[in-house]
Measured scan of single mutants.
Amino acid sequence: RSVMTEEYKVPDGMVGFIIGRGGEQISRIQQESGCKIQIAPDSGGLPERSCMLTGTPESVQSAKRLLDQIVE
């Protein structure tokens, strides 16, 4: 099973929602998708923050879907 890492951008203002209280939302996304998510510590003043998604292609797709649901 191939593991890939893909960069994915999320709106900087939504990072708090994505991480959730005490990190529980991001933990849930990682468990549900099976994908490891690393969010950049800051956006460098840009409107979007970079996330690194690491996992199988299916888990990366799944994580993107879950992130999109939060961001919308």
Rank of each mutant, 00 (worst) to 15 (best):
A63E: 00
I29R: 00
Q31T: 12
E58H: 09
G44F: 05
E6Y: 09
D68S: 13
D12S: 10
S33G: 01
C35Y: 00
S59N: 09
I39T: 02
L53D: 00
M4I: 15
D68L: 08
E72G: 15
Q31L: 10
G55V: 00
Q61K: 09
G16V: 05
R21S: 15
K9I: 07
E48P: 06
S43C: 04
R21L: 15
D12V: 10
R65E: 12
I18S: 02
P11K: 07
E72K: 04
I39R: 01
Q38L: 10
M52R: 12
G55T: 00
P11L: 05
T54W: 03
I19R: 10
K64G: 03
T54I: 09
R49C: 03
P57M: 08
R21H: 05
G55L: 00
G13P: 12
G45A: 09
S2L: 09
S43K: 06
V10A: 04
G22H: 12
C51H: 01
Q38W: 09
G20L: 02
D12P: 13
I39S: 02
G13F: 04
I70N: 04
G22W: 03
S62I: 07
K9M: 10
I18F: 10
G16M: 05
S50M: 12
L66G: 05
S59G: 09
K9N: 03
L66W: 04
V71T: 07
M4F: 14
V10R: 01
K36L: 11
L53Q: 00
I70R: 13
M4E: 06
S50N: 15
D42Y: 05
S27V: 12
I70A: 15
Q38C: 13
R28C: 05
D68H: 10
I19A: 11
G20I: 02
Q69T: 11
G44C: 12
R65G: 11
C51F: 15
D68P: 01
G13T: 15
V3K: 15
V60Q: 03
R49P: 04
L46G: 13
A40F: 05
Q61F: 11
Q25K: 13
Q69S: 12
M52W: 13
S27K: 15
M14K: 08
Q25A: 06
D42R: 11
R65A: 14
G23Y: 07
E24S: 11
G20W: 02
L46F: 14
S62L: 13
G55K: 00
V3G: 06
G22S: 05
S59L: 01
L46K: 13
P47R: 09
E72P: 08
G45I: 04
G45N: 06
K9T: 06
I39K: 01
R49T: 08
I29H: 01
G23L: 03
G45T: 07
G20N: 05
I19M: 07
R49H: 05
I39A: 02
C51R: 00
I37V: 10
V71C: 10
I19Q: 11
M52V: 14
G13N: 12
D12H: 10
C51D: 00
R65P: 01
E6Q: 15
I19C: 14
F17V: 13
M4Q: 06
M14Y: 11
S43N: 10
D12F: 08
C35S: 03
E7V: 05
R65Y: 09
K64W: 02
I37D: 00
V15K: 05
K64I: 06
G44I: 08
C51S: 02
R1Q: 01
Q38H: 11
P41D: 14
C35E: 00
P11G: 04
S27P: 03
R1H: 02
A63G: 08
K36S: 10
V71I: 07
I37S: 01
C51W: 05
R49Q: 07
A40R: 08
G44E: 14
G55I: 00
D12T: 15
E48Q: 06
S43Y: 04
I39Y: 03
T5R: 13
I18A: 03
I26H: 04
E6H: 07
S50A: 09
S33Y: 01
M14P: 02
A63D: 01
Q25R: 12
E48G: 10
I18H: 02
L53A: 01
P41N: 09
I29E: 01
I19Y: 08
K9P: 05
I70M: 12
E6I: 08
V71P: 09
D42M: 07
